[in-house]
Simulated scan of single mutants.
Amino acid sequence: MIETDGPFVDYRLGNDEELAAAVFASRIVEPMAAQRITPDAVRRLEEVFGELLDRLFS
């Protein structure tokens, strides 16, 4: 997962697990804002977790 701008840019140097956890939490707390602010990270999370996210956020 690569995020080149926005609030998750600091995770670039960390690991994918930390970024995925941060994006997932943001997606739960503020789903619309997360998609607006970090569309690439949210899109990647949706690609990886697909159906699970559909059930959680529907």
Rank of each mutant, 00 (worst) to 15 (best):
M1K: 06
E3F: 03
T4P: 00
T4L: 11
T4H: 05
D5T: 15
D5Q: 11
G6M: 05
F8L: 14
F8D: 00
D10L: 09
Y11T: 03
Y11A: 05
Y11F: 15
L13W: 07
L13P: 01
L13G: 07
L13Y: 09
G14M: 09
G14K: 10
G14D: 13
N15L: 05
N15Q: 07
D16K: 07
D16Y: 03
E17A: 09
E18T: 06
E18L: 10
E18M: 05
E18G: 12
E18P: 02
E18F: 05
L19G: 04
L19T: 04
L19H: 07
A20F: 03
A21R: 11
A21E: 13
A21C: 08
A22P: 00
A22Q: 01
A22H: 01
A22T: 04
A22K: 01
A22I: 05
V23Q: 01
V23D: 00
F24I: 06
A25V: 13
S26F: 08
R27H: 11
I28C: 15
V29W: 02
V29Y: 03
E30R: 13
P31K: 06
M32L: 12
A33F: 07
A33T: 11
A34P: 03
A34K: 02
Q35R: 13
Q35M: 08
Q35G: 13
R36K: 12
I37D: 10
I37P: 00
I37H: 08
P39Q: 01
P39L: 00
P39E: 00
P39H: 00
P39A: 02
A41F: 00
V42H: 00
R43F: 09
L45H: 01
E46G: 04
E47N: 14
V48F: 06
V48Q: 12
V48L: 14
V48I: 15
F49T: 08
F49A: 15
G50K: 10
G50N: 04
G50S: 12
E51H: 12
E51M: 08
E51F: 10
L53P: 02
L53I: 10
L53Y: 01
L53T: 02
L53F: 05
L53M: 07
R55I: 13
L56Q: 06
L56N: 04
F57P: 03
